[in-house]
Amino acid sequence: MKVMPDAYYSVPPLGATRSAPPEPALADRLRRFPAGTHITIRGLSKTFAGTPVYDNFDLDIPKGKIVSVFGPNGCGKSTLINMISGILPYDRGQILFDGKEAHETRIGYVFQNYREAVFPWMRAIDNIRYPLQYLGIPKGERQARLDRLIESFEVQFDLNAYPYQMSGGQQQLVSIMRALVVDPEVLFLDEPFSALDYEMVMFLRGRLQKVLTERQVTTLLVSHDLDEAVLLADEVLLLTKRPTQVAERLHFDAARPRTADTSVSDDFIRVKSRALEVFQREVRK
């Protein structure tokens, strides 16, 4: 669905419950976004129990890049990606993916708690296959996609096992593969590695980066670990305390694949130091 800026004065924003027309400033903001933008967020507002978490929040997310979301506790990092991905309703505002809404967009979502995200009654392979049925593509093509994905992840364990027979890292890998099998336009990762041991984290980061670089998927990663947020990102999005605004956006252009070695490079340390500076400033506010 395309938004026609000229007609916008007479049409309330999508997903809005407010009946008054948007202030001209919003309509004006709607027209402007940088080239290469995939997701546009305008005038986003969300209140939890009377406290505004987001109030008139604007954001542009570039296409095919990995954006990390980092900010103070309770600033609504997960809330943000949940609203963008369409699993959490918002009070006001508009979120569009190349002009489409979330339900018209192929979305992959990886939850932090993999134990409650995979389907334990299905074998791992059937978990990964599950979302393909909603794509409306022929059976042969489904199998081909599945095979391609398994190949690019170089899976070493038996995908015919049930999730409860697998380690936590393997379950989260299944969860990541399930999110990627549909060839998503946008991938959301909500602290995907925080419940795993470090060896597994390094392994999964490697596999994920490889596939994301191959496929150029627009990715939003929420992380509470600044090292991880910087290491994986093309861009780090730093948020303020609530009501949340963008504090700063930092670019990180180191070559991929990024490994533990990247995290001792000068470039990494520079970006991380700057991020830390902004973060501490925001926390103290």
């Binding site: 979305i107 939850f111 409650e116 979302p131 909603y134």
Partner: peptide
């Protein structure tokens, strides 16, 4: 969360019921 996972994968409401909630 599993219901949300199914929703975000594009499952219609009745499929969320049959594929996730019932199980």
């Amino acid at each position: 969360q599993r219901q949300l996972a199914a929703r975000v994968m594009g499952a219609p409401r009745w499929r969320v019921l049959t594929d996730v909630t019932l199980l």
